[in-house]
């Protein structure tokens, strides 16, 4: 072992170590190989990342924005930001969590923009008894295999859930989609939303209650 640092150097180093957050340990990320290759300039690796996560991000964006075209644009913008910011990705969270956080940020910006407001005016997300904008897309997704009655019940329930989701506030919708639809853990949701773990817990509880109450009001 070497000689201990003199007191004159030990104090500034201690302060620095206190101020500067310790680097987090790299998580076990199934996308690590592709991320590393894409950062090295491998376009095919980045395309594999796109193919792996575009569906999840598209569905999240569509539920958050309530419009298919807006969701398509949001996904394109999200991957463009991912592509440009991949060099800054430190691997402290999973790539999926990091990409989800970017997608949520993009969707928030679009919701705040005038064009998104106009789109929501034509197809309201919250309030009103109009049909959810994604209902047409959902009708195409109904699987006829379970039989007429089961298919009809599943389709009605899916439509009811979509309608109840649309009535939630954006914050409640975000946390509910991340934790219940995408299955993210509380920690991952907190990382994606940029908030504390306790905030995620309390917000998710209120979101569940709101969704339950909306469903109990429209579901027999």
């Amino acid at each position: 072992m070497g000689a201990p640092p003199s007191p004159g150097f030990a104090y500034p180093l201690a302060v620095l170590s206190w101020v500067r957050p310790a680097p987090r340990a790299a998580v076990d990320d199934p996308d690590r190989v592709e991320v590393t290759a894409a950062r090295a300039g491998d376009e095919a690796a980045f395309e594999r990342l796109v193919a792996r996560h575009e569906g999840t991000l598209y569905r999240l964006a569509r539920r958050l924005l309530g419009d298919e075209e807006e969701a398509l644009d949001a996904v394109q913008e999200t991957f463009l930001r991912i592509y440009r910011g991949l060099g800054a990705f430190r691997g402290e969270a999973r790539f999926r969590t990091w990409a989800t956080g970017i997608a949520i940020h993009v969707c928030r910006n679009r919701l705040a923009s005038a064009s998104a407001r106009a789109a929501r005016r034509s197809v309201p997300l919250a309030g009103g008894e109009e049909e959810d904008p994604s209902s047409r897309f959902e009708r195409e997704l109904v699987d006829p295999a379970p039989g007429p009655e089961a298919a009809a019940r599943g389709s009605e329930l899916r439509r009811a859930v979509s309608r109840a989701l649309a009535k939630l506030t954006p914050e409640h919708r975000e946390v509910l989609l991340l934790c219940e639809m995408q299955g993210l853990s509380y920690e991952e949701a907190a990382a994606a939303l940029g908030c504390r773990l306790g905030t995620v817990r309390s917000r998710l509880a209120r979101a569940r209650r709101a969704l339950r109450q909306h469903l109990e009001g429209i579901w027999p």
């Binding site: 575009e54 569906g55 999840t56 598209y58 569905r59 539920r63 897309f137 959902e138 997704l141 599943g154 329930l157 899916r158 009811a160 859930v161 979509s162 109840a164 509910l176 989609l177 219940e180 639809m181 995408q182 299955g183 969704l211 339950r212 469903l215």
Partner: peptide, 13 residues
């Protein structure tokens, strides 16, 4: 509803 929410993530794109 929770199961339906999980199914929403399986929708086709």
């Amino acid at each position: 509803a929770r199961a339906t929410l999980r199914e929403l993530d399986q929708e086709s794109t």
